[in-house]
């Protein structure tokens, strides 16, 4: 006699969406984490880049720190949305750096991470609790 209601509203995402989300997460977190480690271990290529920008060494550690934090946040489901937001911001900065000072070599990685971050942001937009009314109504 028990009846069940139909699935209304935003229920479980389909399997395809889940796969896409995780691919985006792994790609973004992988590249961000790798770039962060190069910066934090003072790889000479990174030192060169940040010397060009006039940010050596503090800016390098700051950006490396932001990248590692966003990589970890992207991998933790509860914070993925905010990690992607931070990662997108860092990548915007990287793209500006490439376009204005560093030359275009290597910009494709920043673009790839930015696209992944946008995918994560879009799929997990309902997690934005501080603007939850935006999605619920």
């Amino acid at each position: 006699m028990t009846t069940t209601s139909s699935d209304v509203g935003s229920g479980r995402p389909s399997a395809g969406i889940v796969v896409l989300l995780w691919v985006a997460k792994l790609v973004a977190a992988g590249i961000l984490g790798y770039a962060a480690i190069l910066k934090l271990i003072s790889h000479e290529h990174e030192i060169e880049i940040f010397t060009t920008l006039g940010w050596e060494p503090h800016g390098r550690f700051l950006i490396g720190g932001m990248e590692i934090v966003s990589a970890i946040m992207i991998l933790v489901p509860q914070s993925a949305l905010y990690g992607a937001f931070l990662g997108l911001g860092v990548m915007f900065g990287a793209m500006i750096g490439h376009l204005t000072a560093l030359g275009l070599a290597g910009i494709h990685l920043a673009l790839l991470v930015a696209v992944c971050c946008v995918i994560i942001l879009y799929i997990r937009r309902h997690d934005a609790t501080f603007i939850r009314n935006l999605w619920d109504r």
């Binding site: 006039g54 800016g59 911001g89 900065g93 500006i96």
Partner: peptide, 18 residues
């Protein structure tokens, strides 16, 4: 400002870009 004064201005560039 980031291009011609100091690269640090790009923190604000990114903020307003977002």
């Amino acid at each position: 400002a980031g291009m011609y004064i100091h690269f640090s201005f790009h923190f604000l560039t990114v903020f307003f870009l977002m």
